[in-house]
């Protein structure tokens, strides 16, 4: 069978709603697109632990601290599910980690913003994880089995992240005037990055056509973004907070919230490495890799010794 015929059959399989599994034939670009998306997603989970890790020792109560620890641990788990999903495509985890550390691989640019107040822990759970859930629920319907199954598992866990974040924001918003101001300030800083996090607008997205044809993504960036906006605006209202967008308005006819112009220049500036924390985040991962080296070596040496002992005993 020639490649064109195989690709045709592959497309028919995708169109009929069947999932693609690891060992099955797939077009080279399908594999490449997935490797790019899944590894970026995995790196985002891992780098995403850093802005929140910043507040673990300073959480305002034991309850908040336990919750934050559990949440950050979940992000590590999500990173690991995703690295294994990517590995099914034939790339090794070590290679992906090296690509992150060398700056070759990307991660979600939202994690290049600093977490300067406790309210940011609320804003991240509410907005960043809120946006992530909308995106990941869509990806869970995607065509690649291992990725879509990882998404299902992650979405279940994300809903706790989302709620605990909203709880923090809501309680601050209903607290003293100073606390409310903290919550509003966090919303002001995280709103637009969360909107941008769902990717370039459909007209600008260079990968969208192919990823949608192959049902790696089943909805466009703008569709997912609109869903996030429609869900989130009423949540801000319920907390008595104001979305930082003077042009925001409800369209009675379409029943959607319409936002003002998105500042894409800022988005691309941060992606290209010029956000407030890009260098800091990468350095933290490089340090962790170096400082963990002896642990990996010790584990390998111990396992080797155990194996040698077993051989001798046999």
């Amino acid at each position: 069978m020639d490649t064109a015929e195989r690709e045709k059959q592959f497309q028919e399989k995708i169109d009929s709603g069947l999932k693609v599994e690891a060992k099955e034939w797939m077009p080279e670009n399908y594999r490449k697109q997935l490797m790019r998306m899944i590894s970026q997603h995995a790196h985002s989970e891992i780098v995403g632990m850093l802005p929140e890790g910043n507040w673990i020792t300073r959480a305002p109560s034991l309850r908040r601290k336990a919750v934050l620890l559990a949440k950050v641990q979940d992000e590590a788990g999500h990173g690991l599910y995703l690295y294994s999903a990517a590995e099914t495509l034939g790339i090794d985890r070590k290679t992906m980690i090296d690509q992150l550390l060398s700056g070759k691989a990307k991660y979600s640019s939202i994690f290049n913003y600093p977490t300067i107040s406790w309210a940011d822990m609320g804003a991240i759970g509410w907005l960043v994880d809120g946006a992530a859930i909308v995106n990941q629920t869509m990806l869970a319907r995607g065509s690649y089995g291992p990725y879509s199954r990882a998404m299902v598992r992650i979405c279940k866990e994300e809903s706790f992240h989302n709620r605990q974040g909203y709880e923090i924001i809501y309680q601050l918003a209903k607290g003293t005037p100073e606390q409310k101001e903290m919550a509003q300030d966090a919303l002001n800083r995280w709103w637009w990055p969360s909107i941008q996090m769902l990717g370039p607008s459909d007209a600008q997205s260079k990968n969208s056509d192919e990823t949608m044809r192959w049902r790696i993504k089943v909805e466009s960036n703008d569709t997912v973004r609109q869903r996030f906006i429609d869900r989130t605006v009423p949540q801000a209202e319920a907390a008595g907070l104001t979305i930082p967008d003077p042009d925001l308005k409800y369209n009675e006819e379409t029943e959607h919230w319409e936002i003002g112009e998105i500042e894409w220049t800022e988005f691309y500036r941060v992606i290209k490495g010029h956000g407030p924390c890009n260098r800091k985040r990468l350095k933290a991962r490089q340090d962790a890799e170096r400082e963990g080296q002896w642990v990996r070596e010790a584990a390998a040496a111990y396992a080797g010794k155990q194996r040698a002992r077993a051989v001798k005993a046999a």
């Binding site: 294994s84 090794d92 985890r93 070590k94 990996r296 390998a300 040496a301 040698a308």
Partner: peptide
């Protein structure tokens, strides 16, 4: 007995 650096992620289970 140390495994080579390319093995420092261990094997897959």
């Amino acid at each position: 007995m140390t495994e080579k650096p390319e093995n420092d992620q261990g094997q897959l289970w």
